[in-house]
Design a protein around this nucleic acid. Sequence first.
DNA 1: GCCCGTCGTTGCGCCAGCGCAAAGAGACAG
DNA 2: CTGTCTCTTTGCGCTGGCGCAACGACGGGC
Lengths: 247, 247
Amino acid sequence: MAAVGPSADVQLLDLLGASQLFHGVEREVLAEVVARAREQRAEADRAVFTEGEPAAWFCVVVTGRLKLTQLGLDGTEVILRFVGPGEAAAALAVFEGAVYPATAWAERGTRTLLWSRETMQALLRAHPALALNALELVSGRLREVQERFRELATERVAQRIARALLRLVRQAGRKVEGGVLIDMPLSRQDLAAMTGTTLFTVSRVLSEWESQGIVESARERVVVKRPHGLVALAEDLPPSQPGDDRQ
Amino acid sequence: MAAVGPSADVQLLDLLGASQLFHGVEREVLAEVVARAREQRAEADRAVFTEGEPAAWFCVVVTGRLKLTQLGLDGTEVILRFVGPGEAAAALAVFEGAVYPATAWAERGTRTLLWSRETMQALLRAHPALALNALELVSGRLREVQERFRELATERVAQRIARALLRLVRQAGRKVEGGVLIDMPLSRQDLAAMTGTTLFTVSRVLSEWESQGIVESARERVVVKRPHGLVALAEDLPPSQPGDDRQ
DNA sequence: GCCCGTCGTTGCGCCAGCGCAAAGAGACAG
DNA sequence: CTGTCTCTTTGCGCTGGCGCAACGACGGGC
C-alpha cells in the first residue's frame, strides 16, 4: 500500500470524475479525495476485505475486478456481483454497518483506491453532493438486488442463467468474431453461485444452448453467439430463430 | 388527501422525529418537513403506488401498514417487505429511479404522509443531515435484501419460512398467552410470496410445525409458541426440545 | 513432454417441492 | 341460520433440479 504519487493524479482524477460516486464533484474536491486515498495492488486469491470483519476501508477499483461473495451457513458461496474499474465496493459497510456484509476477491493484478471509514464519512459530511451521489449509488444497487431477488423467487434456473449471462455481456462484453465474449474468467461454479443453482445444472444448460448455437463455451470462457436467443429465454418468449441475431 | 392541520402536528413531529429518516433532525426543520407533507387515508385493496408508474410521491406510514410487492413476468407476486408506522416507502423511486420498483398495498385504514418527489429532493439538498439519514436507511435496506437473496439462493423452503416468521415476530410480534402472535393478517399465500414458494408448501410446513408444537396457526393468523424451535430450524441446528422456550 | 491440478461433462438415481383437485373450515352478509 | 366467499388442508402424481461418481479435457509448471 502506498500514498498516491503526483504522476498518477491525472488518471485517477479522470477515473473518479467519471465514477458514479464522484461524478459532478468539483475538480478541487476531487483532488482532496484523491489526496486522502491509499492505493493498493491486490494479490490474487487474497480477499481485499472479508465478510464479518469490522468495516475499515471503502474501496474503488482502478484496474482489474473484484468478486463480491457471501457465505451461507453450510459454506455455499453466493456471488453478489462483480466490481469493475471506477466502481465502488464496501459502500454498505462504510455508510451504514459495522462489518463488511460480503467478501471481496480480487482478480490478479487488481489495483484499488482505499479510504478509511472515518475519511469517507468526513468527506460525505463535508460535501453534500457526495452524499447525494452515494444515495443514488446505493439506491441503484438496492433496485438491482430486489430485481434479482424477484427473479430467484419466481423464475426457473435456465431463465436466471440467461439473465446472468446478459448482465455479464453488458458489464464485460467484448465483441469477437461470431458473438460477444464475456471478457473475464467465468467458471460454471461462478455462474451457479450467481444464479442460485449448482455447477452441474449450469453445465447441462450451457451444453444444451451450445447445441442450439446460442452460446459457445470453453474452460472459464463463454461467448454469446445469439444474444436475442438469450433474451427470449430470459423473457420466457417463444424461442427465436437462428437468423434473428443478424446485426 | 388533505393538508396537515396544526392539531396533528405534535404527534406527527414525534413520529417523524423517531423515524430512521428524520431522526436527529432539528425540530424546526422537522416542522418544515411536516408543513410540506400531505396526509392521505388509504382505502383497503387499493394501491398507494404501483410498480412501473412514474415515481411521484415519497411516503411515510403514520398508522397501519403497507405491503410492498413486485410482479413477476408470469404474474407471480413477490412480497419485498411490510412497512409499518414511522417507516418509509418509495425511497428508491424518489432518490434514484424514475418509476416505482414495487407496488404498495395498504391495510384498511392506513394513514400515510406523502411528499412530492421534487419536495423530497429539495429537502435532501437543503438539509445534508437528511441525506445522510437517507443513505443509512437505503444502505440498511440493501443489506437486508442481500441477506434474503443469499437465503433464497442457499437455503431450503422450511428454513426460509422459519426466518420469515422470525422477522415478522420482530416486526409485528405481540405477546399473548402461550406464545407470540404475529399481529397482522398473514395468509399462507403471503408467506409463500415472502419466501419464494407456494401456499401449498407453506401450509404443509406449518401443519408439520403445529404438530410439533412450534407454532399455532389459523386463518391468516400465526402464533409462534416456541421461538427457539424456529431459530433452530432457521440456523439448521439440531431440533430444540419442547422445554427450551421457557422464559 | 509429461504430470498434476483444476475445470467441465454426462449418466443415473433420487427427492424436495410443485401443481392440481377435492374437500373442509371460518368469516361475513343478509 | 344460511349461503357464499375466501382461505386452508391434504392426498396424489409428477418433475425440475440436485448430488454423486466417473470420466474427459485443458493448461500451467517443471
